[in-house]
């Protein structure tokens, strides 16, 4: 069924005749007549009463008129939805595989600017071995793990801090040595597959066996445990912004950890992708980080 024929049909009824309708729609009368004829043939019924004066609708024509209006309205609505789909409405998915609270600032700024776009932020450092086959649009991870994907720098890991409750005996120190932590109870995160976070490895590599009292799977529990027990942990400097806006936590630099120097990047898949909003986020992120670095 030809959609233009529907518009012609509606126009003929509204304008009261084919001549006027054809001129309103800028098509020839013969073209219009032939498309109505095709429509009637397709439906197997006459839509107009051709005997007598003027153009009268048959009963079938009345029935079809309501439908024609509904269909034309549906097409208009459909075109509008398509436009909406390609502009600023929908979902962007970001997975973070490296601790960096700068991402919250980037995402918040983005959400403020584009409130109709919903961001799904997956903050759990779960098994990401094959993030490329996930449906995430963006990944936050250390540059050396991003397998050559296009990316923009978002943070730099420079050194470690010992994170503890602000009532802890070491909380007022200016600097801490690993050996000062011999008697401390530690909390570390471990991923679902049992892989310990790299902080534990760091300790071991530097000849220090931490006493692990708590293991949690995910950053939420980590903060709770530190606030409510005497346990401590190690975090990168990239955790700075969040903890500075919170009471009850203290972070003291760990001596000797400043040889750390890794970029954390926001990476994305190259090439044509299903999500047009990803480009919007990407451009925003690039501009945002440029302004950040200029500060």
């Amino acid at each position: 069924m030809d959609m233009e024929a529907l518009s012609s049909f509606i126009s003929i009824v509204e304008e009261g005749g084919m001549t006027k309708a054809a001129s309103v729609l800028h098509i020839s009368q013969s073209a219009m007549s032939s498309s109505i004829g095709k429509l009637e043939k397709e439906l197997g019924a006459a839509l107009f009463d051709r005997g007598g004066k003027g153009l009268q609708l048959t009963m079938e024509g009345e029935f079809f008129l309501t439908w024609a209006k509904r269909l034309v309205s549906a097409i208009d609505e459909g075109k509008r939805s398509v436009q909406e789909a390609i502009t600023k409405k929908g979902i962007v998915k970001i997975g973070t595989f490296a601790e960096n609270d700068g991402i919250y600032y980037l995402v918040s700024a983005f959400c403020k600017k584009y409130p109709q776009i919903t961001v799904y932020l997956y903050d759990r450092k779960s098994i990401w071995a094959d993030f490329l086959s996930s449906d995430l649009d963006f990944f936050v991870l250390p540059k050396n793990e991003c397998r050559g994907l296009p990316s923009v720098n978002v943070a730099r890991r420079k050194n470690l801090y010992v994170l503890m409750g602000s009532g802890h005996r070491l909380a007022k120190r200016a600097l801490i040595q690993l050996k000062d932590l011999q008697e401390e109870r530690f909390v570390f995160t471990a991923s679902a597959d049992g892989k310990m976070d790299s902080m534990y490895t760091y300790c071991v590599e530097h000849g220090f066996e931490p006493r692990v009292s708590f293991l949690c799977e995910g950053v939420e529990s980590l903060l709770d445990i530190i606030l409510q027990t005497g346990a401590v942990t190690l975090v990168y400097n990239t955790f700075r912004q969040f903890r500075q806006r919170m009471d009850g936590l203290s972070a003291v630099p760990l001596d000797g950890s400043s040889r750390e120097n890794t970029e954390i990047v926001l990476a994305w898949r190259d090439g044509n992708d299903t999500n047009p909003l990803a480009d919007i986020f990407k451009d925003f992120a690039v501009n945002y980080m440029e302004r950040e670095y200029r500060r």
């Binding site: 549906a74 097409i75 609505e77 459909g78 075109k79 939805s81 398509v82 909406e84 789909a85 390609i86 929908g90 299903t274 999500n275 047009p276 909003l277």
Partner: peptide, 11 residues
């Protein structure tokens, strides 16, 4: 289908 295609599919 991309996002626009998904929407147009329904129509």
């Amino acid at each position: 289908l991309n996002q626009a295609g998904d929407s147009f599919y329904c129509t």
